[in-house]
């Protein structure tokens, strides 16, 4: 690396130093590969090894009892297709995505509009509003667990004021209220994320275009759909994509609030996979499920990216 360093300004002649130069030149040519090598090696730990491993193990029959590594074909995949609990967990996951995502987007957008025009102290508001986002999701879940407590939590108390009588809702146990409870916690934590990104995007919209549209007599809705939306779309698409992926893997908040209960009624893919793998030790079966999830994700991400063309 240091050839020619000590020799100062003298240039390598045709003798020995030239050889050195040539050697370090090869180093130069391979430089770009050396630079990515360590990172790639580490990423393969999560990017390649698990995929291959789950694929292999999913065709064997490893369970807590059995170390059967013979080839069993698609047995577990077939079982998975008939596993009602798997499909239900997929459905639960889907419910969380389709309710939470639009809610976060709409609330986030409304908040972004609220703070879009000049508002003294805006920086402070924004700084405070971002706190839920950077809280650990498991801590957020724990916090809501305290808030939702049927006796000592403030939520029931506040509802009681409005109802005029004590409200004894068992938020984390009553099947009618577990979904709202989880969704409230989830939306509370991630709406500010949407808000922050949309505020930044809205601030970057060319103001003169909006004014021109207003002069042309366009109403708020028309201006929004014709000018604002296309302008913020790239950022919005990324925000939605990030949140959709996060919601798809929803685990922490549910773990803290209900652990998938009561029964299996709030079990998501992630929770079910955890239970299967680490409580029932259905190694091969879990692997089949993991691999299926990878495939589903890979396909849908590719399709979505292609549709949204936010790639670059």
């Amino acid at each position: 690396m240091n050839s020619g360093g000590a020799t100062g300004e003298t240039v390598a002649g045709p003798g020995g130093p030239a050889l050195l130069t040539r050697a370090s030149q090869a180093a130069d040519r391979n430089f770009k590969y050396w630079m990515i090598f360590p990172a790639v090696l580490v990423i393969l730990l999560i990017g390649l090894f698990p995929v291959i491993y789950t694929l292999i193990v999913s065709t064997q029959n490893l369970t807590m009892m059995d170390e059967d590594t013979t080839f069993h074909g698609l047995m577990h995949y077939r079982a998975l297709l008939e596993d009602a609990r798997f499909w239900e967990s997929l459905l639960h996951t889907f419910i969380f995505v389709v309710v939470a995502l639009p809610a976060e987007l709409i609330f986030g957008l409304a908040m972004a509009y609220l703070f879009l025009e000049r508002l003294p102290g805006r920086q402070i508001f924004v700084a405070l509003l971002v706190l839920p986002v950077i809280t650990s999701p498991i801590i957020a879940g724990a916090t809501w667990r305290l808030l939702f407590d049927n006796r000592f939590g403030p939520i029931n108390q506040i509802l009681g004021w409005f109802a005029g009588e004590p409200v004894p809702i068992l938020w984390t146990v009553d099947p009618n209220f577990v979904y709202p409870a989880i969704l409230i916690a989830e939306i509370w934590q991630w709406t500010p994320f949407m808000f922050l990104l949309l505020l930044a995007a809205l601030s970057n919209v060319d103001q003169s275009q909006i004014e021109a549209a207003e002069l042309d007599g366009a109403g708020f809705w028309r201006t929004f759909t014709r000018i604002v939306l296309p302008a913020i779309w790239p950022v919005m698409a990324i925000a939605v994509l990030i949140r959709a992926l996060d919601l798809f893997r929803l685990f922490d908040v549910i773990w803290a609030l209900t652990r998938g209960g009561p029964g299996t009624s709030t079990e998501t893919i992630s929770i079910y996979a955890y239970v299967l793998g680490f409580q029932q030790f259905e190694t091969s079966y879990t692997s089949a499920m993991a691999f299926l999830v990878i495939v589903i994700l890979a396909v849908s991400i590719t399709l979505i990216l292609r549709r949204m063309e936010i790639d670059r």
Binding site: G4, E9, T10, V11, A12, T21, R22, S24, Q25, D28
Partner: peptide, 9 residues
């Protein structure tokens, strides 16, 4: 031709 910038002085 094959010298790197630093070696060309």
């Amino acid at each position: 031709n094959n010298l790197r910038p630093r070696d060309r002085n």
